[in-house]
Design a protein around this nucleic acid. Sequence first.
DNA 1: TTTTGAGTTGTTCGA
DNA 2: GTCGAACAACTCAAA
Length: 483
Amino acid sequence: MALPPVIVWFRQDLRLRDHPALTAALERGGAVIPVFILDDAGEGRWPAGGATRWWLHHSLAALDTSLRARGSQLVLARGDSATVLRDLLAATGANAIHWNRRYEPAAVARDQTLKAALTADGIEARSFNAALLFEPHTIANRQGGPFQVFTPFWRHCLTQEFPAPVALPAGPFPAPARRPASLDLAEFGLLPRLGWADGFGAAWTPGEDGARARLKTFLAHAADAYGAQRDLPATDGTSQLSPHLHFGEIGPRQIWAAARALARDTGVFPSSAGVQKFLGEIGWREFAHHLLWHFPATPESPLRADFARFRWADDADGTRLRAWQRGLTGYPIVDAGMRQLWRTGWMHNRVRMVAASFLVKHLRLSWTHGAAWFWDTLVDADLASNTLGWQWSAGCGADAAPYFRIFAPVLQGERFDPAGDYVRRWVPELATLPARWIHQPWAAPADVLARAGVRLGETYPRPVVDHATARAEALAAFKALRA
DNA sequence: TTTTGAGTTGTTCGA
DNA sequence: GTCGAACAACTCAAA
């Protein structure tokens, strides 16, 4: 009598290496049935946005290819997760389900209910940690509560131990006697009907192999210089691992192990200040997930409750929001970022901060508008990171920027894109403007504009708000909140 | 137990 | 041109 098969429920862990749920299933010795369920309703208010759906399509294809190379294949299903899993149990004779945990409020609630119900019915439901260095409930301050400031959080984390990544299971994977039916990937309808994602494929390689290649390239070429280069949007100074991390094509423990391996040559860990800074970013991702787990209302509500009564600007017809979304604010660094986002599904981190500050401070539109737009357009849209980032920018979250920190778009452009290469690339109508004026075309002499073929208000917009005025109004509005 | 110092990413103003 | 101060308020942890 063969052992009953085990269902391995893939979610945001689309890899085979360092996959504790899969490894534990294989160790039982029976067949494994890998399944992915598209369950939008189960995501609560945050079903995957357009750009992440594009990524998910390709990542699922890559995972299926990897599984087929091991004699297995990914079962695709759509609908209520619990119902699908119950049907699969019945159809395959499986008596156990394994999954790696998620930390978004809707997923946590769903998984807890499901686990209790399955256990009550005698089905073994086991969950594992593949997404984080530490389980959120194991990291607490002296008072026993969650850290709300990054530095003490991370300092504390660095004193704690976490397991090494789980090795790639040896193949082939035992297949079940009865293979359940699967949808075709195309039936998920994850790819956009319109062509807005046409440029994504040139920029990204979704899937575990793509993630590993990206990490390898980054550690070999960019990590040591990360500290300085990461702030320059015209260069490839960042790791660009965020979408791979979101879908769990690679996990933080693997990244940690790879950085440690790199340090073997020097005998020092981390091997350089750049690597240390990069690992700190892994720490921020960790911080974001822990905060979301502790404060599940934060995707919609400010962590600092007094912000709920902040008076945002009136934008009833959506003019301001649309100008920001389309990259037509008249501030080149902001517009370049918003257009890079639209074209590639990604925006450089430095420019995200500038664009976010501009929306919240200069346009005084709620951070929730920005969070919603990023959620739909970023290939790395992640509820934990998106929430932390926007609340940080607005000054209403954990360890948030002080209200008077208002990024000056011209200054930021001149400081971090001094030659204007980034602006030229994404705002082609300014491409031939000299660097002296490229971050403030409205101030350029008429003959300079004419030679560059720029007609303000026609080929490129005038600034939607005046910086000095908007800054003063934002300072007053945010200060009033304090009173 | 209480006090104290420090804390991702900035800008402007005035000396 | 450079530099320090001011722009709050609160959490956390070390002393």
